[in-house]
Design a protein around this nucleic acid. Structure first.
Lengths: 211, 211
DNA sequence: GGGAAATCTTGACGACTGTCCAAAGCCGTC
DNA sequence: GACGGCTTTGGACAGTCGTCAAGATTTCCC
């Protein structure tokens, strides 16, 4: 019985290391999957293609993921963390309304440019979730967190101009998302002014959202 | 040489009738395809499934359409005419700004409710066109005509309140489309207030678009 | 009414998909 | 250094896909 209560018994430590290794593999495979997905879109991405963009063979995907839906769900979740990490922190450090508008407009334009393919994938998956039950819940969760992010911006702006938000959060999100989506579409189509139009549009729309 | 110049020679008439019949078949098949597409989405719709929702067998599709892309392109074009026909005429008969806002809000809410699946398909195809070159041109054409439709509304509203539009057409379209897309998403998810939220949102947004 | 052309059906083809599995490779532990 | 479990491979499987073509059927014209 001696030291059976020791929580760092060799067996436990090895089990933990194993679990960590598995998590790491899953993350790596999900990264490869996101790469392929953002390039080809959901409809045209096969498991073999994903595996070819990774260091492994196609069979290993079913060792780490139950099936294709499990993998894609995991990818969506991973994308979400990537997403909110990027977005957060834009709002925090603004001292004046103008600063905030600048920061938000610039932040959105920057991520649109840098992560254009990931955003394209996001809109793809969001649309697919309208047809496929599988990852609807995860998509809805991301949508909600994006809406809350926009809403934090509106609240911060309202505070800085000494007014109150004058619209529901869903209205703010819908209109700004519409602007972002259109800008992405034009940016991908090669329109040189897409980013500037987005900046101007976001500034204008945010300004009308407070009383 | 006698009547070789007669434009209604039997051969011509028969050729014309044949062409008409072909057009009719193509329209019927495209209708069946639109039915299936709007139910399953682009990614999950196969030619066999389309044929099963029609009165014909799957082989006939390649008699009237070169390939799948040709069929879907034809569907997209057909959807466009269906779309603008529906939309047009909302704006024309408004006497006061309030009338116009009512009419537009109600018109958008009505088509969202009645043609929910078709609109879902539209967003699906628009997203697919970000990945697939094939029907990008047709999608862009529809997008443009929708933008012009919204813009006509803005202009009419501005005229009625005696002001000028105070934003670019693309801004008006992006924000209203964002509202419409969100409302569709919530409506399909079963939210009972989706239509009312859309009505309120559209009214609010349109009102801010003129000086 | 018969023959030719248009139309439609049916089955086949090769390519591709997600999934599964037996075997091989790998690695830590005794 | 050999054993045993964890990883990984690559092929097999059943299914579906778009496409095609040969044959059956219908339609039309003389």
């Amino acid at each position: 019985m001696a030291r059976r209560t020791d929580s760092t018994a060799p067996a436990d430590r090895s089990a933990r290391r194993r679990a960590d290794r598995i998590d790491e593999r899953r993350r790596a495979l999900a990264d490869a999957a996101l790469l392929t997905l953002s390039e080809l879109g959901y409809a045209r991405t096969s498991l073999r293609e994903i595996a070819q963009n990774s260091a492994f063979s196609h069979g290993v995907l079913h060792y780490y993921f139950r099936d294709k839906v499990d993998l894609i769900t995991y990818c969506v979740r991973q994308y979400k963390t990537h997403c909110v990490e990027r977005y957060d922190g834009i709002v925090a450090t603004a001292a004046s309304p103008e600063d905030l508008l600048d920061g938000v407009a610039e932040g959105l334009a920057a991520t649109l440019e840098q992560d254009a393919l990931l955003h394209r994938l996001w809109y793809d998956l969001r649309t697919q979730s309208l047809f496929e039950e599988s990852f609807r819940a995860d998509v809805a969760a991301i949508d909600g967190s994006l809406e809350r992010m926009i809403w934090r911006t509106v609240e911060a702006y309202a505070r800085l101009v000494g007014a109150a938000p004058a619209c529901p959060p869903s209205f703010a999100y819908a209109t700004v998302d519409g602007l972002f989506h259109q800008a992405l579409q034009r940016h991908l189509a090669g329109a040189a002014d897409a980013l500037d139009v987005l900046r101007a549009g976001v500034r204008r729309q945010l300004a009308t959202l407070v009383a």
